[in-house]
Simulated assay, not measured.
Amino acid sequence: MQNLITDVRGLLVGHAHDVAAGTGVTAAIFERPTIASAAVLGGAPGTRDTALLDPEMTVEHVDAIVLSGGSAWGLGAADGVMRWLAKEGRGFPVGAFRVPIVPQAILFDLMNGGDKPWARGEGETPYARLGAEAAAAASARFTLGTAGAGYGATTANLKGGLGSASARAATGQIVGALVAVNAVGTATIGDGPHFWAAPYERDGEFGGIGWPAAITSDDTALRFKGGTGQNTTIALVATDAVLTKPQARRLALAAHDGLARALRPAHAPLDGDIVFAAATGYSGAPSDAFAMTELCATAADVLARAAARGVHAATALPFAGARPAWRDRFGH
């Protein structure tokens, strides 16, 4: 176990980023077509091909899930991932052709200080290229923090980032999470170093400092970043269990609890919070509703941990006025 979503068999993750632009892409590539669904609880989502993930829709399996910066411009990242998958002979069979199924979600990182001329109508966006590079780089090991879709991410007070975590549920099956934290609020309590997700931490994975001795009304006062459209936390949870598409939808809904545990606030009108859920099917199916509940609870826990890890591991962007990283302020 590496404490990464790739502990779930059948799943690889790759990143690509543009340093000058301060943005990036993360691609989760499934080794075979995989059951998936999603749940959107934020008020301002940006997505591509997510309607097909509804349980009543025909297509059940996906080939990849893409998380990207770039706001709506970033939706081009899936084009690059599709081209890479097509070269690998992957996709939904339609006559003599195969169409790779690649749902995607984006976050807003346009105002982090990077140079993004395409947002002014100048030149082409880099996202299709970054998508292809991220897919080609997919492996069992990948970087956390300022990487991939989390490269340009921020929170209200600190640099955001790309996080991941995993655990073995009481059922014996593995559940993992991958998240790009670009929240309208905070992952930390008040003005201090403590993470809201501290009760769920394992083995000091984001500092091991727990909660503060007391949490005051000042600590729970809401802190906001930016305005409408400048936020979104996007995530994928995966398990090696055998799930139906409706069960994957339930897993995604339950995993949103992890965002609520790790970020204050979550699911706001200003956020586009979405969680994808995938089941690679290499271990058994849940034996009953209680076993499914174990998977759901584990998914929420690992997503909370992953969100804190993403902020904890981040490094500040090299731009004037960039938000400080947790390690810059509290690393001592």
Rank of each mutant, 00 (worst) to 15 (best):
L251Q: 00
G161T: 02
T154L: 14
N182C: 10
L263A: 11
M111D: 06
G123Q: 14
A27I: 02
S283E: 06
T239N: 10
E31W: 08
R141V: 11
D288M: 03
K159W: 08
L295G: 00
A277P: 05
H194P: 04
A136F: 10
P286V: 10
G123K: 13
P324R: 06
A39H: 12
H15Y: 11
G113M: 15
R305H: 12
G10S: 12
P193E: 05
M82G: 02
G258Y: 02
L263Y: 11
A27R: 01
H194E: 09
A156L: 08
G113P: 04
I234R: 01
L53A: 04
L11W: 02
G113N: 10
L178N: 01
I174S: 08
A44D: 13
G152I: 06
E133G: 04
D49W: 11
G89Q: 12
G176S: 06
I189Q: 03
M82N: 00
T228A: 11
A183T: 09
V175L: 00
A268T: 07
A241N: 03
A156D: 00
R141L: 12
T216N: 07
A177F: 01
G204Y: 07
T188S: 10
A16R: 03
A268Q: 11
A147I: 14
T293W: 14
V19W: 09
G95R: 15
D219W: 10
K225G: 09
Q104S: 13
R261C: 07
T50Y: 05
Y151F: 05
G14S: 02
L67S: 01
G42S: 14
L53D: 01
V62Q: 00
P117Q: 13
L259Y: 08
A38R: 00
R309W: 05
A153I: 05
R141C: 13
A137Y: 13
A325D: 05
I234V: 14
G150M: 13
T315N: 15
V181M: 12
G321M: 13
A307T: 12
Y282H: 10
A221W: 14
G210M: 08
A262H: 08
H194R: 10
T50H: 02
D49V: 09
G131V: 06
A134M: 15
T171L: 01
A156R: 07
F224W: 10
V181I: 14
P193S: 09
I101N: 02
P324N: 15
A266S: 14
T155C: 06
A238S: 08
H256R: 15
G70Q: 04
N182A: 01
L243A: 01
W73G: 09
D63K: 08
V94I: 08
T228L: 08
A39V: 01
A135R: 09
P103E: 04
A248M: 00
E31L: 15
T188N: 14
L144H: 03
L130Q: 09
A137G: 09
F319M: 15
M111T: 15
P126G: 10
R141M: 11
P93M: 11
P45R: 07
F206P: 01
